[in-house]
Amino acid sequence: MGILIDRHSRIVIQGITGREASMVTRHTLAYGTRIVAGVTPGKGGQEVHGVPVYDTLREACREHSPDTSVIYVPPAAVYDAVAEAVANGIKLILIPTENVPQKDAVKLLALARRAGVRVIGPNSVGVINPAERVKLGAIGGDNVERCFVPGPVGVISRSGGMTAEVSWMVKRAGYGVSTSVSIGGDALIGTTIAELLALFEEDPQTRAVVVFSEPGTSQEEEAADLILRGGFTKPLIAYIAGRFTEHMPEGTVFGHAAALISGNYGRPSLKAARLREAGAHVLDDFDHLIPTLRKILG
C-alpha cells in the first residue's frame, strides 16, 4: 500500500532528455520503477535508457496511457507543461523545478484544482513508496536503500534534503517508510501536510507519520485543525526547524522561499504549540525522533 503511487502507476517524464531528467530516469529504472514514456518536443522517436520519447504528451498518452507525470522543465516552461498534463488526463503531477514564478504557480494550481488533478510541488525532490519499489523524481538518488526501506512510517517534509535524512532516521530506529513525500519548499504548493495526513489516515500500512517542518505558511496549523476535527487519528511526530529565525528581524527569509515569518504568521513556536495542543509529539531535539518512534511503534 502506501499513498499516491504504487506499482500500477503509469509514469511519464515531461522533458526526459534533459541532463537531470535523463539521470533521474536511469536511477529510477535501476530501482525497478517502470517509466512508460518520455516527452521532449522535437526529440520524438529517440529513447532515453530504453524509454521511448514522444514530441507531445498526447502521442505518449495514445500509446501508453500514463496517469502520473514528472515535469522536468525549466521554470518558464512549467506552466505550459502542467497545462499539457491536465489537458491529457494525467491525474498526479510531480514538479521538481525550483524558482517557478508565483504567478505561474497559482495559475497551474488553479488549473489542476479545476480538473481534479493532484500536484506535488513545485520544488519537490520526489515521492517514494519502497514496498512497491516505485519512486518519482530524484529522491534516493542512485543509492535508494541507504535511506528508504519499506515500513510503517509515513514521512512528509517541507525540505527535499531532509526527506532523505528523516527516512534514514526512521531506518536507524529500526523501521522503514510506507511513503516519503517531499512536498516542496515554496510558499504556493499543490499538496499540503494536512492533505497528505488525510491520505495516510486511510493507508493501512501507515501506523505513524513524521513531519519535518520549517517557519512560514500555515500548514502545521491546518494539520493541527485536522487532528482536532478527527481527520487524522494516528500518532504524529513533528520537528519544526528554524526556531532561531523567530529572534531575527522580521521579514528575513532563511531556508526555503516559504520560510517567511510575518507577525504571528509562520512562527515555529506557535506551530509547535498548536500541534502539541492537538496531541502531536513535537520534538525539541531531532535525535529524539528515534526513541519516540520506538516508544510509539514498540
Binding site: 525540505s159 534534503g161 519548499g185 526547524a241 532563511f254 526555503h256 520560510a259 531535539d285
Partner: peptide, 28 residues
C-alpha cells in the same frame, strides 16, 4: 551547511548546545 532544511536544523541545534555560529549558509 545545507540544504534549506538541514541548515535550519543545524543552526538551531548548535545554538541549543551553546555553540555560536558566525554566519548562516545554505549550500546545495
Amino acid at each position: 551547511c545545507g540544504g534549506g532544511g538541514g541548515s535550519l536544523l543545524c543552526f538551531d541545534t548548535l545554538l541549543a548546545l551553546g555553540g555560536r555560529p558566525a554566519n548562516y549558509s545554505e549550500v546545495g
